[in-house]
Each structure stands twice: as structure tokens, then as C-alpha cells.
């Protein structure tokens, strides 16, 4: 191969090296954001994990949520929402985008049977396994609910929000939240019964 002047690779600017250095440097976050990350990361992750099929996707979306929040930090208005509500609003949008993409590709329905990160607190190993299996079935059934039901259940049982916080997030009243949760649970009960019936017929 010719090694003439025309084939010599141009010098790269120092930007890439500095960027790489920035990754490895002892890094700091804005103090407020550091606190949000510490206090609300688990809540956001659990919410996302309740909405998507696998741990990997949940991790990707959670990363995306905090990166977006960091970039938009100067646009956060504490007068309008609390940090956790704001973060969860970003998470809701990210999950919605993700599900929309899956739906467009026709690959929305994904088996959750191999979800390895759902566990249960039980006294014995056997009981834990049985309980984990029950919870897995419950999780599967919840994934068949309509999106609004999944949304409210994920905010309550995934993110662990109180009704008032869900109300703030969804911009509805706390009473309306309670009613939605009640109805979503009723539909979940039907879905679980339906799945149990299908399993019994096999």
C-alpha cells in the first residue's frame, strides 16, 4: 500500500483525548442532581422495569432518563413539580417512546418468563421459588393490561409513589388515582384468572 502524503491520516484534534480523560477523571455531578440520583434512581428504575420486558432495556431507559434530566437541568422548575415527579415524567415519556418503537416493529409482546430479576422475600428457598413463580405470573398478567392501567400500577407498585404523587404526575386528582388503581387491580385480577385458566387447560 502506498504511504504517500495523500494517504497520511490527518491529525485528530485533542478533543477526543480530552473527552476520554473526562470519562476517567474523578467526576462530580451538580449537588442537587447528585441527591436526586441517590434518592430517586431506584424509584425510576423500578418504574421502568415494571413497564418493559427485560432488565437490559430497563437499564438503558433509566440511563436515558437521567442523561436527559442532566441535560435539561436548567429547565427544571421546582415550582411546578417535585424532582421525583419530574424524573418520572421523563421516564414515562421514554418508556412510551420505547413501546411505540416496539409496536411499530411488531415486537411488543415479549415473554417475561425468563425475567431473572424478580424475586420474593420468603422464609425458605422453596417458598421463595414458589412465590417468585407466582409473582412472575402476576407480572406477566400485568403486562397484558391496557397501557393506562400499566401506567398507574407501575407508578404505585414500581416507583412506590403515594396517590398524591401519582396525581401530581398524571395531573389528575388523588381520588381519581385511587379509582384508577382500584379498577386496574380488578382488571389485573381478571387477567390473572384468565392466565391461570389457560395454564390449567394446557
Amino acid at each position: 500500500m502506498t504511504n504517500s502524503a495523500t494517504t497520511k491520516k490527518p491529525r485528530r484534534s485533542g478533543r477526543v483525548r480530552r473527552r476520554a480523560g473526562a470519562v476517567s477523571a474523578p467526576a462530580e455531578l451538580p449537588p442537587d442532581f447528585e441527591a436526586w440520583f441517590r434518592d430517586h434512581r431506584e424509584s425510576v428504575y423500578r418504574y421502568v422495569r415494571f413497564r418493559v420486558a427485560t432488565r437490559e432495556v430497563a437499564e438503558d431507559i433509566t440511563s436515558e432518563v437521567f442523561l436527559k434530566a442532566l441535560r435539561a437541568l436548567d429547565r427544571y422548575d421546582p415550582g411546578r413539580s417535585r424532582p421525583r415527579t419530574w424524573l418520572l415524567r421523563i421516564a414515562r415519556n421514554a418508556v412510551t417512546d420505547h413501546l411505540r418503537k416496539l409496536r411499530r416493529r411488531g415486537s411488543l409482546h415479549i415473554s417475561l418468563d425468563r425475567a431473572p430479576d424478580l424475586v420474593s422475600d420468603g422464609p425458605s428457598q422453596e417458598e421463595r421459588l414458589l412465590r417468585a413463580e407466582e409473582l412472575r405470573r402476576l407480572f406477566n398478567a400485568a403486562a397484558t393490561l391496557r397501557e393506562a392501567d400499566q401506567e398507574v400500577l407501575s407508578l404505585r407498585y414500581g416507583a412506590g409513589l403515594e396517590n398524591a404523587e401519582i396525581a401530581e404526575s398524571l395531573k389528575i386528582t388523588a381520588n381519581a388515582v385511587a379509582v384508577r388503581i382500584h379498577r386496574a387491580l380488578a382488571r389485573l385480577r381478571e387477567a390473572v384468572a384468565e392466565q391461570s385458566g389457560q395454564a390449567g387447560n394446557r
Binding site: D117, L118, S120, D121, F139, A142, Y157, G158
Partner: peptide
């Protein structure tokens, strides 16, 4: 049951 679901990060 839903409250008992533990998700391991």
C-alpha cells in the same frame, strides 16, 4: 402481592 415484588438491580 404487587408490593412484594422485589426487583434486583
Amino acid at each position: 402481592d404487587l408490593r412484594e415484588i422485589v426487583i434486583e438491580e
